[in-house]
Amino acid sequence: MFEARLVQGALLKKVLESIKDLLNEATWECAATGISLQAMDSSHVSLVALNLRSDGFDKYRCDRNVSLGMNLTNMAKIMKCASNDDVITIKAQDDADTVTFVFETPNQEKISDYEMKLMNLDTEHLGIPDTDYSCIVKMPSVEFQRICRDLSQIGDSVVISCTKEGVKFSAAGDLGTGNVKLAQNANVDKEEEAVVIEMQEPVSLTFACRYLNSFTKATPLAPQVQLSMSSDVPLVVEYKLEDMGYVRYYLAPKIED
C-alpha cells in the first residue's frame, strides 16, 4: 500500500507544471524515503530529476517500493480538477494498475476522487556523477525566468559567462545581440533577492533557450534558483522545495561544430 497526503496540495500541482513541458510520461518511484522521478525529454538533451521527501508529506505510508508510470498529460488533466487550497492524497495498492488521487477541500465538505490508469514504462536510469562545479550562481528565480524569456527573443542560444564579479547572459541572432549582466549582490534586504556567486574558475557555456525556458516553469516552486556550471559538463538548474526536496534540470551545453 502506498499513500501520500499533502495538505499544501498546490505544491504537487506546481511540481507537475514544472515537468510536463519536457516530459510526456514518467515513472514516479515511491519508496519509504519519499517520491523520486528521473526522466529525459524525448530528444535526450535534458533531464529532470526530482525528489519529494516522505517527511515533507503530512501523512506518508509506503509498505514496499512501487513504480507508478504515468502519462503526465493525463495526470495534469486530473490535477486541474484540484483547487489550489485542496488537500491532495495519492494512493496505490501494491502491484496495482491504477493510481487514485483524492482532493479534499480544507473544510472537508467536498471530497473528490479520480482513478487513473498506470503505464508500464521502459525507463532508463542514468548515473549522474558527483561534480565539483567551477561556478555556482544563486539568483532570484523570477529574474532567471525573465532573462531566459527576454534573450530567447534575440536568439536560439544563451551564453552564460560567470566570473567572481558577476554573471552575464548573452544572445545573438539575425536582429542583433543582447546582454544581461548581474552583479554579485548578497547585501540585499530580502535573502531571495540576492545574487551570490561561488567561483573556482570562470566559465562560459552555451545553452539552448527552449530548454532553459522549459526549466523556468518551476519558478513558482522557489524564490531562488541555483545554476551549477563547469566546462564541458551539463548545467544543473535547481529549484529547492522548502522542507520537501528539489526539482533539478540538467542540460548538455552546445559545442562548436
Binding site: 529525459m40 530528444s43 535526450h44 538533451v45 535534458s46 533531464l47 532508463e124 536510469h125 542514468l126 548515473g127 549522474i128 556523477p129 542560444s157 552555451t206 539552448a208 559538463v233 551539463p234 540538467y250 548538455a252 551545453p253 552546445k254 559545442i255 562548436e256 561544430d257
Partner: peptide
Amino acid sequence: TSKQPTLSKFFTAQ
C-alpha cells in the same frame, strides 16, 4: 555553428 549533444555523452545508463 554549434551542435547540441545528448546527455548520453555525459551520463551513463545504470
